[in-house]
């Protein structure tokens, strides 16, 4: 314990927390654990939050995949989630639109507020929640339908277009913003599954923004894209953030540094550190964060 210097000041034992158990996670002795509670380094709140997650725990059966994570998603902001594979980034963002409901063995505890409303409340309509909190999945998953129908799917089920012209407009603008229009404008009737991997990824982005969500969760949206398409998506993210809140999971430090205002570092299901992107990349407070961003880990 003595060799850890940086975070000492942040590790405040919780009032009433019983015996001090430092080794509840033997695999990662560096994490400062007090009882069952790790205190995130940095300010996890946001001045103008759309989503407020408090003390979120996720279990897959017995696997405690997310442990006591609290994090705000600010309006008109991009927050990037980074961390080694399997640390729970996807799991966390899937909590925000209750996609974990579709996994039988997943249990979510804690409080998540969207615009002040508890998303786990009985009154909350999950279907509407998912329209408001859109998601781009880690693996491109276009529907086995035409390119057009893929993008029109959301607007159709939510009745966003009154007639065909309006629908055409939504489809076109969504595809344009996702940087796919020029490539597919002559093949709108061809199956979306026939596109290349990178095109499929952009199709899925177009499909998500066509619904006009308030919050967009992007799980590694550029993992299959070339630098040009990546730049395009990053421009799109910049533009979207004028109106929306965006959470992006990425394995690219450069991308996180380029597009996001805040960065959160996850490690083994814990939110280790969160702060302004500049600060995280220039002056990380926690050892684990520093190891990760300097490439000594993961």
């Amino acid at each position: 314990m003595s060799q850890a210097t940086k975070v000492e000041k942040d590790t405040v034992p919780q009032v009433g927390a019983g015996t001090v158990e430092e080794t509840s996670v033997p695999a990662a002795p560096d994490i400062r654990v007090v009882g069952d509670t790790y205190r995130t380094v940095g300010d996890y709140t946001s001045a103008n939050p759309v989503v407020r997650a408090r003390n979120v725990d996720v279990f897959y059966g017995d696997n405690h995949a997310i442990q006591n994570v609290s994090l705000d998603i600010g309006k008109n902001q991009v927050i990037s989630l980074i961390g080694p594979s399997g640390c729970g980034k996807s799991t966390f963002i899937r909590c925000l639109n209750r996609m974990n409901d579709t996994i039988d063995i997943a249990r979510v505890h804690g409080e998540i507020l969207l615009d002040g409303e508890d998303i786990h409340a009985r009154r909350m309509d999950v279907v509407m929640l998912r329209a408001r909190v859109g998601m781009v999945f880690q693996k491109p998953n276009p529907f086995p339908k035409s390119v057009y129908d893929n993008v029109a799917y959301g607007p159709r089920i939510h009745g966003l277009a009154r007639n065909r012209q309006e629908l055409d407009r939504i489809v076109r603008s969504s595809l344009e913003r996702a940087g796919l229009w020029t490539e597919v404008k002559d093949r709108l009737d061809e199956p979306g599954t026939g596109l290349s991997g990178g095109q499929q990824q952009r199709l899925c982005i177009a499909r998500t923004i066509a619904v006009g969500p308030e919050v967009i969760l992007m799980d590694e949206p550029c993992s299959a894209l070339d630098p040009i398409a990546t730049a395009h998506i990053e421009d799109l993210i910049d533009e979207l953030k004028k109106n929306f809140a965006i959470v992006i999971v990425t394995h690219s430090m450069q991308q996180a540094a380029r597009v996001s205002q805040r960065t959160a570092y996850f490690h083994l299901g814990r939110l280790i550190e969160v702060g302004d992107t500049d600060q995280i990349f220039t002056n990380p407070q926690h050892e684990l964060t520093e190891d990760y961003i300097t490439g000594r880990f993961g």
């Binding site: 279907v127 509407m128 998912r130 999945f137 693996k139 086995p144 799917y153 089920i157 998500t208």
Partner: peptide, 18 residues
């Protein structure tokens, strides 16, 4: 039918029967 497709649809706010 892959779970991904279901997730994609639910993720866009579709109901189960849709």
């Amino acid at each position: 039918v892959p779970q991904d497709l279901r997730d994609g649809s639910y993720g866009l706010g579709a109901t189960q029967s849709e």
